[in-house]
């Protein structure tokens, strides 16, 4: 049990992934924002210490365009390079080898997609890529299906965090199968973060109440009418959900149970 689980007055409820310690349990993406300034303001409001980033070709024809690093300082915020858009293990491995060279760190987000329509992961390719990357010294946090067996296999393949989808990427449908997310949490020895599917603050709270170590989201903040306000809402909901999980919710009853005493009724 961590300190926070035994002492409710202890506000240190940090978590650790691959030997790195973080206070915020919210990881945010950096895609789909109106501009870099809005993106940076949303990251600030979210309190996130880790942001996901993509690896893409530089624009040779106009290299003077502003870049993400000018707005979100990788020395202050941990960049988690992803493999978004990769449909094979080989593409994902190539992308992360380049990312390691560009950034100089090993903590990465692996995702190998199965098809464009659903963006569901291809788990055979994902597990294969995870093995190769772990053997090369990478620390892969892995986007995956909400399948407790696949989660175990990923852990055996060297995943440093299991990141099951709550619903399809960018769908905002919320956590569709709370049972499988809870089973993954119960079975995992590494951190579990819901990655994808969160639409609004209550979805993030649900993930945390299920015992997840964190939540990763992008679209729910970037596509909100007021992304900066939603970023703050997500910060609060992740904290609230975590507190509720640590507090331990009441049991469910089939029928009513009065809160006022029955004795002494006039």
């Amino acid at each position: 049990m961590s300190e926070a689980e035994t002492n409710p007055n202890n506000t240190d409820d940090s978590w650790e992934v691959a030997g790195q310690r973080f206070n915020s349990r919210l990881i945010v993406g950096t895609g789909k924002y109106k501009d870099f300034a809005q993106n940076a303001a949303a990251v600030e409001a979210s309190g996130a210490e880790i942001v996901t980033v993509a690896v893409r070709r530089v624009n040779i024809s106009d290299p003077s365009q502003p870049v993400l690093m000018d707005y979100i300082d990788p020395k202050k915020t941990t960049y988690l390079p992803n493999t978004a858009g990769c449909f094979t293990a080989d593409d994902a491995i190539r992308t992360l080898r380049l990312a390691r060279e560009a950034g100089g760190w090993d903590l990465v987000k692996l995702e190998v997609l199965g098809e464009a329509r659903t963006l569901y992961p291809n788990m055979v390719e994902t597990i294969r890529a995870c093995e190769v990357l772990a053997n090369e010294g990478f620390k892969p946090m892995v986007y995956c299906v909400d399948d407790p067996i696949a989660a175990q296999q990923l852990e055996e393949a060297g995943a440093v965090a299991i990141m099951p989808l709550g619903a399809p990427i960018g769908s905002g449908l919320g956590i569709q199968n709370q049972v499988t997310i809870r089973l993954i949490v119960e079975g995992a020895k590494v951190p579990v973060l819901v990655d994808a599917g969160v639409g609004t603050a209550s979805d993030a709270a649900v993930a945390m109440e299920l015992g997840c170590d964190g939540v990763l989201m992008n679209t729910a903040i970037a596509e909100a009418k007021d992304p900066i306000r939603m970023a703050r809402a997500m910060k609060l909901s992740v904290e609230a959900g975590r507190e509720a999980y640590l507090a331990g919710r009441m049991g469910r009853r089939k029928y009513a149970d009065p809160s006022s005493p029955l004795a002494g009724l006039i």
Binding site: G29, G31, L68, M69, A99, A102, M217, N218
Partner: peptide, 10 residues
């Protein structure tokens, strides 16, 4: 040559 850098992404 392939020259890449970090861009916004989820």
């Amino acid at each position: 040559l392939e020259i890449v850098h970090f861009v916004g992404g989820g």
